[in-house]
Design a protein around this nucleic acid. Sequence first.
RNA 1: GGCGUUGUGGCCGAGUGGCUAGGCUGGGCUCUGCAAAAGCUCCUACAGCGGUUCGAAUCCGCUCAACGCCUCCA
Length: 488
Amino acid sequence: MTQNLSIYNSLTNTKELFKPLKEGYVGMYVCGPTVYSKVHLGNVRTFMSFDMIYRYFLHLGYKVRYVRNITDAGHLTDDAAEDKISTKARLEQLEPMEIVQKYTVDFHQILERFNFLPPSIEPTATGHILEQIEAIQTIINNGLAYVVNGSVYFDVLKYNEKEHYGILSKRNIEDAIENTRVLDGQSDKKNPQDFALWKRAEPEHIQRWKSPWGIGFPGWHLECTVMSTKYLGEAFDIHGGGMDLKFPHHECEIAQAVACHNTAPVKYWMHGNMLTLNGKKMAKSTGNNILPGEIFTGDNKNLSKGFSASVTRFFMMQAHYRSVLDFSNEALLAAEKGHQRLMDALNLIPKLSTSNKSTIEVNLWRDKCYQAMNDDFNTPILIAHLFDAVKFINLIHDGKEYITSEDLDLLIKTINAFVFDVLGLNNNAENSGQATTQLESVVNMFIEMRNAARADKDWALSDKIRDDLAAKGIYLKDGKEGTTFSLK
RNA sequence: GGCGUUGUGGCCGAGUGGCUAGGCUGGGCUCUGCAAAAGCUCCUACAGCGGUUCGAAUCCGCUCAACGCCUCCA
């Protein structure tokens, strides 16, 4: 089962059979958030894709070390020698680490709400300044970086003499040079393509550390190289991130790693695609975004109502992680109904009766689920198969198909594994054990009263009970084998 | 301007050189006191124009459109 998993590798632009560097183990690094503001739903999508991937590896029995960093040292902006975190800090009269703390907590709370598994290690850039300085020194020693006025730059042209800068993003440095815009304040660089490894801190700059080249702060590409190497080794299996990080960020990571260790750092590069809103990429800077909190409350001009975390997750899992997904209220409403249908079927499982023969091929169905996931984590196909199971369950419940207890066990085991362990969905209706049991007994009481009324053909009372319960979010359904209810 | 991706039925979204995606919506039927649910069923698409092929929506070319990266960005 684990042998035929194939992964689309952005480095080769092909699907490749996944073979871990060390049998049975997976090392995975994913670029985490810059904690200078609230994450928006687009950010969440990428992390969710890799959460699903992490979950599937675990499900297959791999020992996974999943590293996802927190960028708390800030990134350079193009027009000032200071970074986002420091800029915001001054505006709000807060310590940089106060901003970091605030938005790190926010990030964690959001992910927890969406039922994310925590990564194995969540290192911070500020916690690895020493390692970054060491790496810079190594690159300088290897002749691939130079020092100017207290800053250190990576010498892209020099690197490109022996290596290919652009191997991931499929660019040629020569083309890049021709098309580079002339930017102000880059006179320190030998070449516009060069990127900062260490940046001198201006006097007003708040985040600053001592280094052999003076007081400053690390360049934004370096932390990922240093932290991935430290926790996963000089070469590791999977590096993930959003499509928009491919260039320059990931390209620079490759160059830095090669410059340090003379070895390609990553075997499989994976890139999740963007979540768009109104056909455009979500971005903090343009205001074209939805915050996760707004999804829950519905407090956004693009939303007619709030949606649960699990519905949102289901919506995202209905698209392949490498496809652009467009967010819309209409799509969310559709996802909500589909999600409900899936959960209703799962709730029906305990009520199924078994037979001495099966009229459905559970083994075949199960294999199809694995085939879908093994084909580059194709969750939309998996979900299509899950709806086949929904149909099975409903038909068995209606007495139109039959299943043995062995097959039922397999069905339950498989569907639970995929719905809850791999896709990470929640079944809200069965969340709180005791409360649910008590609610169930009370609702069943009403159902009995209503059945008595129906037996007397007292439709007025019967309908009143149904309508009043519906008004409280409890919906009755009259099936062949009695009345059941669902919560909304 | 350079590099790249995409264009699928009312909507969202998979996939494929010839064979059902799936979800949502709408129509019909079964069931039902009614409704809901469930089941069955119908509406059967692949931007446009050429080319390759026995056969293309799937491969190639061009056109149009959209998006992403080239600057911080999931």
